[in-house]
């Protein structure tokens, strides 16, 4: 199980040869994608964040290396060395670099394996969310009329359902599992994407190039996905990059409420949940998994902010250079 690398830059570069904006500058022939990538590359905070994200991805991929280094598996319980005589977790020492948890397991190794879950869910659920949202948004904006009204109401419903309550109810019926967590997040988060895409498509569909495509006999499907879709990609990419940290937080929250992955799977939210009864005696049990989660979401948020700035330099930035 390897976590896919969350690098929107790959999309950006790859997309540049797929479509050219009609209003690109003739002199140098640089597409908006190349310009955006150029701006992103000069953005120091975004590049540092990207470095942190790459590091986390590497930790996730090479999690077994931590097992090799320490000699501890993610679910191995060290009842003699990993627990104090009173049966409490052991503080960081030369054997357990970040200490142990309530069952005498190595927190460092579990954090490394937990990165796999966070990234996997963060990326797969985001892709599902964006895919549903884009299809619904394009359909609503392009067809208009009854389709639009129905889909818009559906979006309203999804947005007004208290997501977490229904999500935990659903998970409790089906039982906790990775698939359910990913589907729950995907099925309840697409509405905002659909809203953004619909707004863009509403104005795009009146443009000449859509009329031209239609007069050439292109089908609705072709117009929607070959002609219109590339033109909404920029806002979608920006939104996607800012959605990943939200999804990672949601997954951690579900796990914290014991509705994420079943134990003994190492998972950051689940680890923090296990630490609750021990926060008074074993700070490391809360602090290290918490720091891993916080650093990850911070890095994704800062990077997403950089991506937004690269595509739309006039937009309001979170952090000024």
């Amino acid at each position: 199980m390897t976590a896919p690398q969350p690098s929107p830059t790959v999309h950006v570069v790859g997309a540049s040869d797929a479509e050219e904006s009609p209003d690109e500058r003739r002199i140098q022939g640089r597409s908006p994608w190349v310009l955006a990538w150029g701006r992103l590359r000069r953005d120091r905070i975004a590049m540092i964040s990207l470095g942190v994200i790459v590091l986390i991805v590497l930790i996730a991929i090479f999690a077994p290396v931590f097992t090799l280094l320490t000699g501890h598996g993610p679910n191995d319980q060290y009842r003699l060395t990993g627990l104090s005589p009173q049966g409490l977790p052991v503080a960081p020492n030369h054997e357990f670099w970040l200490g142990t948890d309530d069952l005498g397991r190595d927190i460092l190794v579990r954090i490394a394996y937990g990165a796999r879950i966070s990234l996997l869910v963060g990326i797969v659920a985001t892709v599902i969310t964006v895919a549903i949202g884009v299809v619904v948004g394009i359909a609503a904006g392009y067809f208009g009329g009854v389709v639009d009204t129905l889909l818009a109401r559906l979006v309203d419903v999804v947005l007004s359902v208290p997501f977490l309550l229904v999500a935990i109810a659903l998970v409790s019926i089906t039982g906790p599992s990775l698939t359910v967590v990913i589907l729950v997040i995907g099925l309840f988060s697409w509405a905002s994407v659909a809203r953004i895409v619909r707004g863009q498509v509403l104005s795009l569909r009146e443009r000449e190039f859509v009329e031209a495509a239609r007069s050439l006999g292109a089908s609705d499907t072709r117009i929607m996905f070959v002609d219109v879709l590339p033109n909404v990609l920029a806002p979608v990419i920006v939104y996607t990059s800012l959605l990943v940290p939200v999804v990672i937080l949601t997954e951690a929250t579900l796990s914290f409420l014991s509705l994420g992955l079943p134990p003994p799977t190492a998972d950051w939210g689940g680890m923090i949940s296990e630490a609750v009864p021990y926060y008074q005696t074993s700070w490391w049990f809360v602090i290290f998994p918490g720091a891993a989660l916080l650093i990850t979401t911070l890095a994704f948020n800062l990077f997403g902010d950089g991506v937004r700035d690269a595509f739309d330099p006039r937009s309001e930035r979170l952090l000024q250079q």
Binding site: T253, V276, L293, L294
Partner: peptide, 24 residues
């Protein structure tokens, strides 16, 4: 700038982690 960093920090913070840190 201070408030921005502050806002970003809490925006990235999971609610349950903040609760536990406040308790701690």
């Amino acid at each position: 700038r201070g408030l921005t960093v502050f806002a970003l920090f809490f925006y990235s913070m999971p609610t349950f982690l903040l609760g536990l840190l406040l308790l701690l």
